[in-house]
């Protein structure tokens, strides 16, 4: 089965063609980062308009790259949620309509399921069951994954997402958007021993996160060291970036280990934009090796939003006989544990 995947939930327009036999045939991405950089974050209305402009040309290009025509596509998968409703509507309207015109099934895919399954596109994919850490600008969640569609939320952020905390801390340090890569770059020159930021919610049991306090801690540290200037000196800014990143990474590592202990699983998948953070990957690899577990992640370009993960996730569900009716689906808030399991729908949820 050959599936066209469309991703427009936030600020990236992603299109891909995935073939269940031949694998990923082509994928293209248009990033709107430049459009939003001036604002320090995604501007919803600008995002929708940009998706409208870019989506059709990207679909044409991706089909050409995959060396196939519309007639050779067997199904369409588009991101139905969660995300910005205007942005979701663009991919949904185009995806659902194309499927109608081509007389093939369409399916609305859960964006985070796409992320969670992105490591399946690698040559050495993880086996089920596993614990997944989903970390991006909009989400921070730990999920027990028994199989596709069999998800149990173990914990999540009670306030800011980890990626959002990176973006906002970067803004306080007058760094560019997106903040994650900027902080990571600066942190390399920072002294990890100069500041000690708290590891929120690690001193009590449970798998929930809270990153809002780190933001305030950053603000206070900046205020203490800037004197009469707008910002502290360059080295201090690097030291703060380093301390901030260490705090976020340590917190994520502690909770991942706890989730593996709690579930008795030996496989961790990290997905979403923050999973591209090298410090997080290295620290997780070291920490998990000590407890005989292994961490999997997607290649960098598939950590952030992309069409390939949507094409892959949609393909698995279409292959299992699932598909939507003629309605265009756009679901801004969509709990992942309400998704139907793959295969026997009567099978008990584990």
């Amino acid at each position: 089965m050959r599936v066209l995947g469309i991703e427009t939930s936030c600020d990236e327009t992603g299109v891909a063609v995935y073939d269940s036999q031949a694998g990923l045939l082509a994928h293209t991405l248009y990033s709107q980062v430049a459009v939003h950089a001036d604002y320090g974050g995604v501007v919803p209305e600008l995002a929708s308009r940009d998706h409208v402009r870019k989506l059709l040309p990207l679909i044409r290009q991706t089909l050409a790259d995959a060396n196939c025509t519309g007639e050779q596509i067997d199904g369409i998968a588009y991101t139905a949620g969660p995300g910005l409703v205007g942005a979701l509507m663009v991919g949904g309207a185009v995806g659902r309509s194309l499927a109608y015109a081509w007389n093939i099934p369409a399916i609305g895919v859960h964006h985070m399921e796409g992320h969670l399954l992105a490591p399946m596109l690698e040559t050495e994919p993880p086996d089920f069951p596993f614990v997944a850490l989903l970390v991006s600008g909009g989400h921070t969640q730990l999920v027990a994954v028994a199989g596709i569609g069999r998800y149990e939320i173990l914990g999540e952020s009670l306030d800011d997402a980890a990626g959002e905390a990176f973006d906002k801390a970067a803004k306080m340090l007058d760094l560019d958007y997106p903040g994650g890569p900027e902080i990571a770059r600066l942190a390399e020159r920072g002294d990890p021993d100069r500041f000690r930021f708290p590891r929120p919610m690690t001193d009590r049991p449970g798998l929930d996160f809270s990153f809002s306090g780190l933001k305030t801690f950053t603000l206070n540290t900046v205020a203490e060291h800037r004197g009469d200037a707008v910002l502290p000196d360059e080295q201090t800014v690097a030291d703060i970036a380093c301390a901030f990143q260490e705090a976020v990474v340590d917190t994520l590592v502690i909770k991942c280990r706890r989730a593996l202990d709690q579930t008795g699983m030996k496989t961790l998948v990290i997905a979403g934009g923050v999973s591209a953070n090298r410090r997080l990957r290295n620290k997780l690899e070291a920490a998990l090796a000590r407890q005989g577990a292994r961490v999997y992640y997607a290649r960098n370009e598939f950590c952030t939003d992309n069409g390939a993960m949507i094409a892959y996730a949609g393909c698995q569900r279409l292959l299992a006989g699932q598909h939507d009716d003629l309605a265009i689906r756009a679901i801004p808030r969509w709990p992942m544990d309400t998704l139907p399991p793959l295969g026997n729908p009567d099978a008990p949820k584990q």
């Binding site: 974050g41 809002s212 305030t216």
Partner: peptide
């Protein structure tokens, strides 16, 4: 400003209104 405690204040307001769950930052969804 960022980190001043706006969302924390909202958490208190929502709690007084009977909300018991998490109060997530609506930055992403507006």
């Amino acid at each position: 400003t960022l980190g001043a405690g706006k969302t924390t204040l909202c958490r208190g307001i929502l709690r007084a209104k009977g909300h018991t769950g998490a109060v997530k930052s609506p930055t992403f969804t507006l």
